[in-house]
Nucleic acid binder design. Structure first.
Lengths: 110, 110
DNA sequence: CTGCATCCCAAGCGATACTG
DNA sequence: CAGTATCGCTTGGGATGCAG
C-alpha cells in the first residue's frame, strides 16, 4: 500500500514528532551513543519511550544500531548517512522555534 | 511562567503538529479563506478540529481572523505577516518529507 | 454561517516489573 | 547492559447536537 500523504510536512512531523525524538537526534548528531548514555543524557525519558523511539527512528532509516556481542551487551546508536540529511532541516526548524519562543516570551512580558 | 523548551524543534512541531494544521496552512498560503471554504477544501476535517486548530494558530500569531459583522456572519482567515515566516520552513520540511516518502515507496517496492 | 459543548474512542506516554 | 510486557493515565481527535 502506497498511502501517499497529501502533505509531506506531515511525514516529517510523524518522523520526529515523538516526545523525545528531537532530543535523541540532537544527542546523536553530537556523537554516537549507547542506550544507557541516552538514558542519562535525557533525564526524564522512560526506558520504554527511549526504546520505542529508537526503534521508530531505526525503521525510518534515520539511525543505525550496532550490536557488539559482548558480555555485558553493548549497543551503539548513530545517525545514519541518510539521517544526516535531517540536520539542515532540523536547523531551520530550530531557528524558527527559537525565534517563536522569544516572541511568545516578549508578548507575555509586555 | 516562561517555560523555555529545551529544544526549539519541539516548539515548531507543537505549532503545526495538529492533524490538519499543515493542510490549513497550505490552503491559507494560497489565499484567504472563510471557515466554510476550509471545511470544503479539507474534506475529512471535523468542524471541531478545524475550529480548534484555527484558534491554536491564531493564538500563536500565525493566522489572522477577520470578522465581518454581517448577517449571516462572515469570518475570513488569512496568513499573518508573521505566519509567512513559516513558509520557507514548511518548504524545507516538505522537501524532506517528499523525498522520504519516495524512499519508503522504493524500499517497499524492491 | 460560524462556531461551542458534550460524549466517546484511540493513540501517546509514564511507571513498574520482568528477561537475555 | 539493553531491552520487553503490562497497566493505567492523559491527550488528541471524531460524531453529534445546540447557539449567536
Amino acid at each position: 500500500m502506497i498511502h501517499q500523504r497529501e502533505c509531506p510536512v506531515e511525514t516529517l512531523i510523524h518522523v520526529l514528532g515523538g516526545k523525545w525524538k528531537p532530543m535523541i537526534l540532537w544527542q546523536l548528531i553530537e556523537s554516537n551513543k549507547r542506550f544507557n548514555d541516552l538514558e542519562k543524557l535525557i533525564p526524564d525519558v522512560s526506558q520504554k519511550m527511549l526504546s520505542q523511539h529508537l526503534r521508530d527512528l531505526e525503521r525510518e532509516g534515520i539511525v543505525d544500531r550496532t550490536i557488539y556481542p559482548t558480555i555485558p551487551p553493548k549497543v551503539e546508536y548513530s545517525l545514519s548517512e541518510y539521517g544526516k540529511t535531517l540536520i539542515p532541516v532540523a536547523e531551520v526548524m530550530c531557528a524558527w522555534g527559537e525565534n517563536h519562543n522569544k516572541r511568545k516570551y516578549k508578548e507575555s512580558a509586555s
